[in-house]
């Protein structure tokens, strides 16, 4: 990808890495590994929720 594209991929790439770490973590062990899995996998979901909440029709004033 060209330099102009890197901005497009910054957040998706970070979410992809977090997802991959989260998916792998809980298979490697319990306890701290489970927590690592829950926290990292929650980030993509939280990003979806926050973006949706902030830009929901009628809430555009907070943009």
């Amino acid at each position: 990808m060209s330099g102009g594209m890197s901005g497009v991929w910054r957040i998706p790439a970070a979410l992809a890495v977090l997802s991959a770490v989260g998916l792998s973590a809980a298979i490697l062990g319990d306890g701290i590994w489970d927590w690592l899995c829950w926290v990292t996998l929650s980030v993509p979901l939280a990003v979806c929720a926050v973006k949706l909440w902030r830009q929901w029709p009628g809430r555009s004033a907070s943009l």
Binding site: L15, A20, P44
Partner: peptide, 15 residues
């Protein structure tokens, strides 16, 4: 909505 939700959950959906 398709682009945001799709790209955010892509690795999970792929796996």
């Amino acid at each position: 909505l398709h682009n945001l939700f799709g790209v955010a959950t892509l690795v999970w959906a792929f796996v």
